[in-house]
Simulated assay, not measured.
Amino acid sequence: MGEIIKLDNICQYNEMVGQETLHPLISVIDLSKSSRIKHVRMSYGFYAVFLKEVKCGDLRYGRSYYDYQEGTLVFLAPGQVIGIDDNGEYFQPKGRALMFHPDLIRGTSLGRNMKDYSFFSYEVNEALHLSEQERGVIIDCLNNISEELNRGIDKHSKMLIVSNIELLLNYSIRFYDRQFITRENVNKDILSKFENVVNGYFQTDKPQTIGLPSVRYCADQLHL
């Protein structure tokens, strides 16, 4: 297992990827415009949401591997370890990243309710797979935050920025629910097909000639 790089604040991450820091507690980054970086395992002192647009290896999340593909959202909470073991190669990340420090949301409704966003937990090791429409909704939220950061900080900035983070996370809850409902329906379809395979098997002379259906036989019939 390689070295784990610890980044305690937003400025350190921005410096690593060659991006300007517009606000010490939050950053929205277009990763395609960042510096090329090496694979590394990192622990952040802040929340991070990555909209991945390229699959660059097996992403280790804690002690497990994270299930993600291109065009997915990955969520990280402070203190968690994620990344890919260093193989000596540099790569160009693509996608968008939202980083925000716990201090930004302290005392807000979002700060009080962060525990409700369970996709920040190690227990959820599956990324959020977005449709094109859902991806557009997430990018709109990120763009709204970017516009506030580039506008300059005033007395309304924090409220509007935190509101857009909360909106993004609430949409993510909806999209995760959609994902698991879809997954449940797919699993039901597979179970129905499996039942048909087994019933069809016992309607032939195969049980007498080759015995009970094997796991390999059923998997082959279901193309699994």
Results as ranks from 00 to 15, higher is better:
Glu3Cys: 02
Ile5His: 07
Arg183Met: 06
Leu98His: 01
Val197Trp: 05
Leu191Tyr: 12
Glu20Cys: 03
Ile173Val: 15
Gln19Pro: 00
Ile153Glu: 08
Ile145Ser: 03
Glu134Val: 15
Phe119Val: 14
Cys11Asp: 14
Ile82Leu: 13
Asn199Lys: 13
Asn150Tyr: 08
Lys115Val: 13
Leu168Asp: 07
Glu126Tyr: 03
Lys193Phe: 11
Arg178Glu: 15
Val197Lys: 04
Ser109Lys: 10
Pro213Ala: 09
Ile29Ser: 14
Ile165Met: 10
Ile10Cys: 12
Lys38Ala: 07
Ser27Arg: 08
Ile190Asp: 04
Asn113Ser: 13
Leu25Asp: 12
Asn14Asp: 15
Phe75Lys: 03
Gly152Gln: 04
Ala48Leu: 06
Lys94Trp: 01
Ile82Asp: 12
Asn9Gln: 10
Lys155Arg: 04
Glu123Trp: 06
Ser35Asp: 13
Met114Trp: 05
Glu123Asp: 14
Ala97Tyr: 06
Val40Gln: 06
Leu169Glu: 02
His223Gly: 10
Leu128Asn: 01
Gln179His: 03
Thr209Glu: 00
Val198Cys: 03
Tyr66Cys: 05
Phe75Tyr: 14
Glu132Ser: 10
Asp8Ser: 14
Leu191Gln: 12
Gly111Leu: 08
Leu169Met: 04
Arg174Cys: 06
Arg174Glu: 03
Gly18Lys: 05
Leu149Thr: 09
Ile4Arg: 04
Leu212Trp: 02
Cys218Pro: 01
Glu126Trp: 01
Leu168Lys: 06
Asn187Phe: 05
Leu167His: 06
Ala97Cys: 14
Ile29Phe: 01
Gln203Phe: 01
Leu31Cys: 10
Leu104Met: 11
Leu212Pro: 00
Gly136Met: 10
Ser121Cys: 07
Arg96Gly: 05
Arg106Asn: 13
Glu132Phe: 04
Phe46Lys: 04
Arg112Glu: 15
Tyr90Thr: 11
Cys141Glu: 10
Cys218Trp: 01
Asn150Ile: 09
Leu130Gly: 07
Ile105Gln: 08
Ile82Glu: 13
Gln80Asp: 01
Asp116Met: 05
Met99Cys: 12
Gln208Trp: 01
Tyr176Thr: 06
